[in-house]
Simulated scan of single mutants.
Amino acid sequence: MKYPIKHVNDRPPQRKYLPGIMLAGICFFLMAANAQAQKIEIGAGVGGFNYRGDISPTFRFRFFRPGASLFFRYNPNQALSLRAELAGGFIGADDKHSKDPFQQVRNMSFRTTIIEGSGVAEYNFLNFQDRRFAVNWSPYVFGGIGYTRFDPNTQTGSYKTSGLVLPYGVGIKYQIRRPWNIGLEYGTRKTFTDYLDNLGGEPTSTDKFQQGDPSVKDTYFYVRLSVSYTFYKIFCP
């Protein structure tokens, strides 16, 4: 009995369709993602950090130091935005610029590096609408939670250099031309440490010039201009 000889080319051709099936699946996923694309933004900001604490008890413009950030924003609806942000920069101050005789005699200064990660919710007062021919802008308020690490240029004591912060503030956003947006924001960071300026906590010396006020925690601020890009469509080959 003779049996037919099967050639390699006689195998079922299912495999040749596999790439097409995979591509169709990817396209289906991207088409579904397109429905959510216009809700996603990525952006960057530049600005400055400032500080209030033992060496600068009040907000002073001369103590602004450079800072920058990257952020991801998700807009589930017109009134609400959710933002994750990574920021970094410097804070610093100097007693010699104070009018307080005690601070002038103390003559202390500091410079600290700040790295912060945060997640906040923004409330848009004017229901920021993402329409092609609309004038889209809105003031907003924001609040959330973050985590910061700080690195004083000269650490004179043993203390923790990281911790939780509570960011909150106000801003304004404006869509200059689809898909580009600009924004201006001012934010305060409430901290739970008294050592941003390397001077704080309970007194460790009888020298009053080496002591801070342990009853008041340090605070820092971040002011920035930002540019962001809104994704409207994901390309499917």
Rank of each mutant, 00 (worst) to 15 (best):
Pro167Arg: 06
Thr230Gln: 15
Ser118Gln: 14
Tyr159Thr: 05
Ser162Asp: 06
Asn77Thr: 06
Pro152Ile: 01
Val165Thr: 13
Gly43Phe: 05
Glu122Thr: 09
Ala44Gly: 15
Ala121Gly: 15
Gly200Ile: 02
Gln155Ser: 11
Phe235Cys: 00
Lys96Asn: 07
Leu166Arg: 03
Pro152Tyr: 01
Pro76Ile: 01
Tyr222Leu: 12
Ile234Lys: 03
Glu41Cys: 08
Ser162Tyr: 14
Arg83His: 02
Gln211Ala: 00
Glu41Thr: 10
Ile234Phe: 14
Asp54Lys: 05
Glu202Cys: 02
Gly169Ser: 09
Pro12His: 11
Gly47Asn: 06
Gly157His: 11
Gly169Cys: 09
Asn9Glu: 10
Ile176Phe: 13
Leu86Thr: 01
Ser56Ile: 05
Arg62His: 11
Val223Tyr: 08
Ile40Met: 09
Tyr168Asp: 02
Ser158Gly: 08
Ser81Asn: 11
Arg132Gln: 12
Ala68Tyr: 12
Phe63Lys: 03
Ile55Cys: 01
Phe209Met: 05
Asn9Tyr: 10
Pro57Phe: 04
Val135Arg: 13
Phe49Thr: 01
Glu185Pro: 14
Leu164Met: 11
Asn34Phe: 13
Gln14Asn: 10
Phe59Val: 06
Phe29Ser: 11
Gly67Val: 06
Asp95Gln: 06
Gly157Tyr: 14
Asn136His: 05
Ser56Trp: 03
Arg178Met: 09
Phe221Trp: 07
Ser118Lys: 14
Arg132Tyr: 14
Phe29Gly: 08
Ala79Leu: 11
Ala121Pro: 15
Arg60Lys: 13
Thr113Tyr: 10
Pro214Lys: 08
Gly43His: 08
Pro152Met: 03
Gly92Leu: 07
Phe125Val: 04
Val105Ala: 10
Gly88Lys: 04
Thr230Cys: 06
Tyr159Leu: 09
Asp100Ala: 04
Asn124Trp: 02
Gly67Asp: 02
Pro19Val: 03
Ser118Asn: 13
Tyr174Ala: 11
Thr188Arg: 15
Ile42Trp: 15
Pro167Cys: 08
Ile176Asp: 04
Phe102Thr: 01
